[in-house]
Amino acid sequence: MLEQSVVYLFVALVLIGGCMAAFSRQVLYAIIGLGISLLGLAGLFLSLGSPFVAAMQVLIYIGGITVAIVFAMMLSIAMSVRPPDPDVRKSMFAIGCAVVFFFAVAYLIRDTSFPQVASPASEKAWSVGALGHALLTHYNLVFETLSLVLLLAIIGAILIARKEKT
């Protein structure tokens, strides 16, 4: 029962954070909303039985990406500048799209019968050891490719962002 209510709390965090991120006009609040949402998501991952991914979520997303976004914001927009008035028609269109999409997907989900696995795999199978083993054997190519992509991204980011020599 307690476990259940904790899960609902995480769901609430995800949605509240998402709303902050989507609707706030100040970029800083949006970033904070993103962080809250990602935190809730990490909790949901935990409830789904994957502590490692949850930890990675917190470490990389909240600790890395969110902070990087904050830096970018600070480097680009003067915090004191009042954000421009929102375009009402544009917001309406965005909300309309989102609502239509949400209900379409919800209808699909309700309409589909998923084959449910009777008993989830045992805790041991979800261990970090099993994950690491899979990553370095079966999914080795993906792992290496991803590391290459990250390297390229870093080099590319430096190249793009550096000051031009005049």
Binding site: C97, V100, F101, A104, V105, L108, T112
Partner: peptide, 11 residues
């Protein structure tokens, strides 16, 4: 939107 419509039509 198109994706949603497709999902509704095919779903």
């Amino acid at each position: 939107l198109v994706l949603a419509v497709v999902a509704l039509v095919l779903g």
